[in-house]
Computed example of a mutant assay.
Amino acid sequence: MTYCLRIADLPTTERPRERLLTHGAKNLATAELIAILLGTGQGQGKLSAVGLGQFILQELGKNQRDPLAVLREITPQELMQIHGIKAAKAATIIAAVELGKRAFQSRPLERTVIDSPSAAAASLSQDLMWQAQERFAVLLLDVKNRLIGTQVITIGTATETLASPREIFREVIRQGATRVIVAHNHPSGNLEPSPQDIELTRQLLAGAQFLDVPLLDHLILGDGNHQSLREITTLWDEYPQGD
């Protein structure tokens, strides 16, 4: 990649912003992340934004220093001593660094404890209760049964939805949950589990045992009510979850 080019002259697949949106921020080089903040380049040699980002890191890394360690404590005035960095670019970088510090240091709010099927149903009601199509969702919990978040995994037709154990546990692991409740809705309002509901629950319980991520319940919601498969089946006796 030639870093004296403008970002607009680069192929779309090589532009930092597009790469971030496609591949995620974690897959970008540090110079590319800085380039997104800079927006434009210039400096000596009329560098692109990526080139200027590399130049900034090079300047911060002089004397065998860690560029990111220097960046964490740098002042706007020090940044503006780097050729090509004026007040606007310096302010953007400093603001991003400070935001990152605050996000890292922030303490989470007290999380809701999910200690019953009704509490779980209430947390999922907005996503599932009155929907015209079947939806399958997960309720993600920490080790103390505190709510981390909820996620709709799939959306089906008016009568069925498909959710594979792979899709479900992928989201559980990605979110770092240590316990999980799954749920889906029956738009008809009939809360009786189907044979498919029972078989999927059996597969999920077996997978939860293997992954050591207890599946606490499988709920069916509809027409303002809910049903707990843990309360009406013996599946949890067949596949103990150690919870």
Rank of each mutant, 00 (worst) to 15 (best):
A163V: 14
E231Q: 14
T30P: 09
G39R: 06
R6Y: 00
L33D: 01
S194N: 02
T161E: 00
Y239H: 12
I93L: 12
E160Y: 04
A208L: 15
L215A: 15
W130K: 07
P67N: 05
E32D: 12
R15F: 03
T92M: 15
G53P: 01
Q203N: 05
L162K: 05
E59S: 06
A132D: 12
T12K: 14
R174S: 08
G149W: 00
T154N: 10
I220Q: 06
Q131M: 11
Q64Y: 06
P195Q: 05
E238A: 11
L139I: 12
E110D: 13
A103N: 13
L21D: 09
E167K: 08
L47T: 03
D66E: 04
P76M: 01
G84V: 14
G53S: 04
L211I: 06
H83K: 11
K86D: 13
R174C: 03
E160C: 06
G242Q: 04
G207D: 12
F104W: 13
E73S: 14
L71K: 05
G41A: 03
R6Q: 09
L47R: 03
R174D: 07
G24W: 08
G189M: 08
K46Q: 05
G53N: 05
I7S: 15
L52A: 11
R166G: 02
R107F: 02
V97C: 10
E32S: 03
A158F: 07
N190Q: 10
K101E: 12
R146C: 05
D115G: 01
C4K: 13
L215H: 13
T12V: 14
S164H: 08
S228R: 01
I34G: 00
A69L: 03
L21A: 14
G207I: 07
R170S: 14
D223P: 00
Q241P: 07
V152K: 11
D223F: 00
T22E: 09
P11M: 10
G149K: 02
V113D: 03
A8F: 00
L124E: 07
A95L: 11
E171S: 15
L200G: 12
D237A: 01
P117V: 08
L5Q: 11
Q54M: 08
L235A: 06
T40I: 15
K86P: 09
P214H: 14
T75P: 14
A91T: 08
P240M: 01
N145W: 02
Q54Y: 01
R135Q: 04
P214C: 13
G189R: 07
I114P: 02
S48L: 02
S118D: 12
R170T: 15
D115E: 04
R170M: 09
T12G: 12
V113W: 07
L216H: 07
G51D: 07
R102N: 10
I198Q: 10
P117Y: 04
D217S: 07
N225C: 04
N27T: 13
F55G: 00
I56R: 10
A95M: 11
Q203W: 13
E160L: 02
E73Y: 13
K62L: 13
T40R: 14
L140N: 01
A35Q: 01
A69G: 05
E134T: 04
A208Q: 10
K86V: 12
T201H: 06
E18L: 15
L219K: 07
K62Q: 15
P195V: 00
L128M: 04
E32I: 08
L229P: 00
M129K: 05
F136D: 04
Q42F: 09
A69E: 04
A183M: 06
E199Y: 10
Y3C: 12
K144P: 02
E192D: 12
